[in-house]
Computed example of a mutant assay.
Amino acid sequence: MSQPLMPHATACWLIENTGLSFSQIAEFCGLHILEVQAIADDTASIKYTPRDPVRAHELTVEEIHRGEADPDYVLKISKGSEPVRRTKGPRYTPVSKRQDKPDGIAWILRNHPEISDGAIGKLIGTTRTTIAAIRDRSHWNIANIVPKDPVTLGLCSQRELDAIVAKAAKKAGLEAPTDVRLDGARAALIEELRRERDDAARVADEGEVPVPEYRSEADRLFDTPARD
């Protein structure tokens, strides 16, 4: 199922402006229900600016009303306008960024040698001659070339780079690399929120907040039992 472009910000808006349940919001935004709970309780580590999915053409008012009327209803994301696709031909690179091309090419050659020269040329907008010169270190400015991520340099998007890496890895019989750092951080956050919820529920069931035993400084020095 497709998800909104900014799930956490969208969830924040839905919490503040609709009567949808947390489970409905979590399902629509692709989040864990505890993440939605944390946003609602204002205990999330990051404060999000609400993003209106209606204005973003990701959700209709009618769909929200259907969800509010039926807690079991699963919201359906609206199909937005088709993204602008690149036409065939060489990629245009602004003059201010053309000097960064060798750095981006060097980064790809070092980190993803499985990508073909033709694919690099289409991604960065360069020639096979330039790529070969950087590879065999015969480029006229090789002394000043420093490998840098082409996404950071603004030469391509992360999605384009990921797609070309996955395609080259598949062709070479390799497994495309996956970044699991965010998954680990998200799992840790969910576990922390779950512990906080369980602790709060346990305190509520007991009916009182536990008070630590009082021990004076003298008691601590002489290791005497706590006084009632």
Results as ranks from 00 to 15, higher is better:
Tyr92Glu: 05
Tyr92His: 10
Thr93Asn: 07
Pro94Trp: 10
Val95Ser: 13
Val95Met: 09
Val95Phe: 09
Lys97Trp: 02
Arg98Ala: 03
Arg98Phe: 04
Gln99Cys: 05
Asp100Arg: 09
Asp100Ile: 00
Lys101His: 01
Asp103Asn: 15
Asp103Phe: 04
Asp103Glu: 05
Gly104Ser: 09
Ile105Thr: 12
Ile105Trp: 02
Ala106Asp: 10
Trp107Asn: 01
Trp107Gly: 00
Trp107Asp: 01
Leu109Thr: 09
Leu109His: 12
Arg110Ala: 15
Asn111Ile: 04
Pro113Met: 10
Glu114Arg: 14
Glu114Ala: 10
Glu114Phe: 07
Ile115Ala: 03
Ser116Asp: 09
Ser116Ile: 00
Asp117Thr: 14
Lys122Val: 02
Lys122Thr: 01
Lys122Glu: 09
Ile124Cys: 09
Ile124Tyr: 13
Gly125Glu: 06
Gly125Ala: 13
Gly125Trp: 05
Thr126Gln: 05
Thr127Met: 02
Thr127Val: 07
Thr129Tyr: 07
Thr129Ile: 07
Thr130Leu: 12
Thr130Lys: 08
Thr130Arg: 10
Ala132Val: 10
Ala132Trp: 08
Ala133His: 14
Ala133Asn: 15
Ile134Val: 10
Asp136Tyr: 03
Asp136Met: 01
Ser138Tyr: 03
His139Pro: 00
His139Gln: 04
His139Asn: 09
Ile142Leu: 07
Ala143Trp: 08
Ala143Val: 06
Asn144Ala: 13
Asn144Ser: 13
Ile145Ala: 11
Ile145Asn: 10
Val146Tyr: 12
Lys148Asn: 13
Asp149Trp: 13
Pro150Trp: 10
Thr152Phe: 06
Thr152Trp: 06
Gly154Arg: 14
Gly154Val: 11
Gly154Gln: 12
Leu155Thr: 01
Ser157Thr: 15
Ser157Leu: 11
Gln158Cys: 01
Gln158Asp: 14
Arg159Glu: 15
Arg159Thr: 14
Glu160Gly: 12
Glu160Trp: 03
Glu160Lys: 08
Leu161His: 07
Asp162Gln: 14
Val165Cys: 05
Val165Pro: 00
Val165Tyr: 08
Ala166Asn: 09
Lys167Leu: 14
Lys167Phe: 08
Ala169Arg: 08
Ala169Glu: 03
Lys170Glu: 08
Lys170Gln: 07
Ala172Met: 08
Ala172Gly: 03
Gly173Ile: 04
Leu174Tyr: 13
Glu175Gly: 00
Glu175Ala: 08
Glu175Asp: 09
Ala176Pro: 05
Pro177Glu: 06
Thr178Cys: 04
Thr178Phe: 04
Thr178Leu: 07
Asp179Ala: 11
Val180Lys: 12
Val180Tyr: 10
Leu182Val: 04
Asp183Pro: 00
Asp183Leu: 05
Gly184Tyr: 13
Gly184Trp: 09
Ala185Lys: 10
Ala185Ser: 07
Ala185Arg: 12
Ala187Ser: 14
Ala187His: 12
Ala188Cys: 04
Leu189Asp: 12
Glu191Lys: 15
Glu191Tyr: 06
Glu191Gly: 01
Glu192Ile: 06
Glu192Val: 10
